[in-house]
């Protein structure tokens, strides 16, 4: 083997290793997380009544972590309202978990015409989202569960309207 050939062979091998490592990392990063802790969670709604997320088992459940102080969260929420209106009768349930003060949540819910439950999040609720892919506790963060309670999609950052519809329609 000439020196140049060996050089290219080595470079090719290095590339293959890099690709394998990258793919390995990507697959490891995408291992479906367990939603049982999320479904076992109970949080107060804006009336102070405790609501268990498990009550919506059997529906396609979209859990959206948000806050009024989070601009990107507020921007994506009108699409959640439309999706709940259009797809609710087919079995979609959107639930918001607000990392916020109840008074601000009530005010914003009224302004937006929120047609799905807004629960008031706690540090526990934030902790539960960490193994689901939100290590930084940032917002918005959305978890989509299928009718059996399995995680179908997690999204850190806003969901595009068409992306939400595609994911949800495939599960309904």
């Amino acid at each position: 083997m000439t020196c140049r050939l060996r050089h290219w062979a080595l470079l090719g091998a290095a590339g293959a290793v890099a690709l394998a490592a990258g793919l390995g990392f990507a697959l490891w990063d995408r291992t479906p997380p367990d939603a049982s802790a999320l479904l076992a969670l109970s949080l107060p709604d804006t009336n102070g009544t405790s609501q268990s997320l498990g009550q919506w088992r059997g529906k396609v459940l979209v859990v959206n972590y948000w806050a009024t102080w989070c601009g990107p969260c507020r921007e994506e929420m009108p699409e959640f309202v439309r999706a709940q209106r259009d797809l609710g009768p087919k079995g979609l349930q959107i639930v918001g978990i607000a990392i916020d003060q109840p008074a601000k949540v009530i005010e914003f819910a009224k302004e937006l015409g929120l047609n799905y439950p807004a629960l008031i999040g706690s540090y526990d609720a934030v902790d539960i989202a960490k193994p689901l892919g939100n290590r930084l506790a940032a917002l918005p963060f959305t978890v989509v569960l299928d009718r059996t309670g399995q995680v179908a999609h997690t999204q850190l950052g806003p969901l595009k309207p068409e992306q939400l519809r595609t994911i949800v329609n495939a599960l309904l």
Binding site: G15, A18, G22, A26, L136, L156
Partner: peptide, 27 residues
């Protein structure tokens, strides 16, 4: 030396992928 080079390139691959995924910084 070859192994060290391959490891370095693999590490770069992982880093590039993490970057491509747009990993946000911790606050």
């Amino acid at each position: 030396r070859t192994f060290a080079n391959l490891t370095a390139v693999a590490a770069l691959g992982v880093a590039a992928l993490a970057f491509a995924q747009g990993s946000p910084l911790p606050p």
